[in-house]
Amino acid sequence: MFVLGAHRANDETGDAMSILIDDIHKTYGAQGALAGVTLSIREGERFGLIGPDGAGKSSLMRILCGLIRADRGSFTLCGLDGNRDLRAIKSSIGYMPQRFSLYPDLTVAENLRFFADLFTVPRRERDERLERLYRFSRLKPFAARRAAALSGGMKQKLALSCALIHTPRVLILDEPTTGVDPVSRREFWDILSELSRDGTTILVSTPYMDEAARCDRIAFIHHGRLLAVDTPAGIPGRFPLTILEFRGRRFPVRHDDMLRVRGVASVRLLGDRLRVACESREAVERAVRDMLERSGAEILSVRTDTPSIEDTFVHLMHEEPGHV
């Protein structure tokens, strides 16, 4: 096992807090407001942030990186105060923004060396680290290639390598795998797992539920508020209802009338499946079935299903006070 970030050694308890966020507020622009976020993330933890666009994921990450300032609230990162030790914090963070933002006209090696210098990595160590990063990213054969000429997956790996060049203790990744092919995505997450095993704390946002399942813990964020923080296995346990799944054809796109059926909490249409969250199967099956058939849908099968992470989140989103 190659050690990318060797932080584990000085932490015997394995329970030290790496990031402590206390009641952070932020309003800026029309969207992306944070309305009091409090959260603590353990050292070496893979922590996932899930939520719709504009929920405040990027804002939260940018505040931790010092790219924007919170209106209210505070945070500490590796024991450093977010309001006072910003430069020291920046040295201990590796950040990958949502958009690929390395220099397209510089080669892979030049990009890596530039960021090594920016974080004042000593020259002696630099080459050694470069070799290690090349090994895990398999970018060595492309070292002399301009970043603009890399494939999507390779670009992501280069961006990650640049974020890792100074062996940060905390890695903040804003939707790192969006638009990357499934094979590269899996590879990318294998690397993340390895990093967290070596003690690097990872805060990552993702729109993919399969990626959320690979985190140690996940938080669901909506309208700038954390709705739930739990392990991927624990999240569905917070779902108090039953999922009734109808399979069939020609399901109506709008389901306002179904929500009026007593006992129905929420309805989601996923291709040929209509997932209805309800208090009990008995109470609603008849009514929903009638409604679907009247609107011309053809039902092939009905079954109860265990709630997924996504079901839970959709439910929580609807439960949220002030939800429109």
């Binding site: 010092g66 790219l67 920046k90 040295s91 690929f100 390395l102 960021f115 974080f119 640049c162």
Partner: peptide, 13 residues
């Protein structure tokens, strides 16, 4: 425009 400034600004520069 290309977002590279964001990447520079997160360094202790």
């Amino acid at each position: 425009e290309t977002g590279t400034l964001e990447q520079i600004l997160v360094s202790p520069v």
